[in-house]
Computed example of a mutant assay.
Amino acid sequence: MQYVDVEIQSKHQIKGSVFLGFLVPYALFESTLEKLKKEHHKARHIVYAYRHLEQGSLQEALHEDREPKNSARGLLDILRRGDLIESAIIVVRYFGGVLLGVGGLMKAYSQSLQLCLQNASPKPFEPTQSVRQWVSYPVLEVLSARARKHGVLLKKQSLDKKGAWVCLQASPELLEKVLGD
């Protein structure tokens, strides 16, 4: 299994419709989706697929956002064939006035992900580890920024006057990037 650790974007056009692809680490999925919904509020459709390991169980999802059934199915199929986990693809579609049909949509959405994968360097997936530690508030700001940058999940567990206990979850490699220096 493998995963992507940075956001990768693609853009292509088919019969007037513009497709914007965003391949992201799963840890950034929800925040990226919300950001894209705000930035592209005039887009006709925002579809997505992801594969995520939650408490040892593989969770997969596909959302076609009012597109015909199975029109974005290729996104999940490509993630599976590429053995990608802890990764999500979001595709924003601006309708160009020409109906593409289910087959045309399948190709178009799949092409968005394939273009992203051409520029990706997936890393081998390592099971997630958790690190719990106390940090002062000034350090917490820096640590939070690093965690977002590297797709590391940071949860604040308890706060006091001088700092907070936090739990960081990611692969050992990503934890080292965030906690190093």
Rank of each mutant, 00 (worst) to 15 (best):
H150C: 04
K38F: 05
Q157G: 11
S112M: 01
L99V: 00
V131F: 13
V139K: 12
V91I: 07
V4W: 08
A43K: 06
E86V: 07
P122K: 06
L113K: 04
R44G: 09
S57K: 14
I8A: 05
L168V: 00
Q2C: 05
G180R: 12
T32K: 14
F22A: 10
V139Q: 12
S57I: 11
L75N: 08
V102A: 09
D160P: 07
C167P: 00
R81V: 12
I90H: 09
L143P: 08
L23H: 02
L23S: 02
G151H: 10
R44K: 15
A145V: 13
L174N: 10
A147P: 09
L105N: 04
H41L: 11
E86H: 07
G97P: 03
V98D: 02
F29D: 03
A43M: 14
G96T: 05
I85H: 08
S87Q: 11
I8S: 05
L53Q: 14
G151M: 13
V98M: 07
L58M: 13
T32A: 14
P25W: 14
Y137Q: 12
H40W: 03
L140H: 08
H150P: 05
A27L: 01
Y109E: 07
E67K: 01
K123W: 09
L100C: 00
S57T: 15
L175F: 02
G180A: 12
E64N: 03
D160V: 07
E86R: 09
K177E: 04
L153R: 15
K162L: 15
V4Q: 08
F22M: 09
F125V: 04
E39F: 00
W134I: 06
Q133V: 02
L153K: 15
Q59G: 01
D83C: 03
Y50T: 04
V135E: 02
N119E: 13
H41N: 11
W165Y: 14
G104A: 04
Q133Y: 05
P138Q: 09
C116D: 00
P124H: 06
I14H: 05
A108P: 03
V152L: 10
V131N: 06
C116G: 01
L143H: 15
F22K: 07
G104V: 04
P25V: 10
L58K: 06
V142W: 11
V139F: 12
L168K: 04
H63E: 08
W165S: 07
A170S: 14
G163W: 10
D83Y: 01
Q13T: 15
H63G: 01
K162W: 14
S136M: 13
V18P: 00
L75A: 06
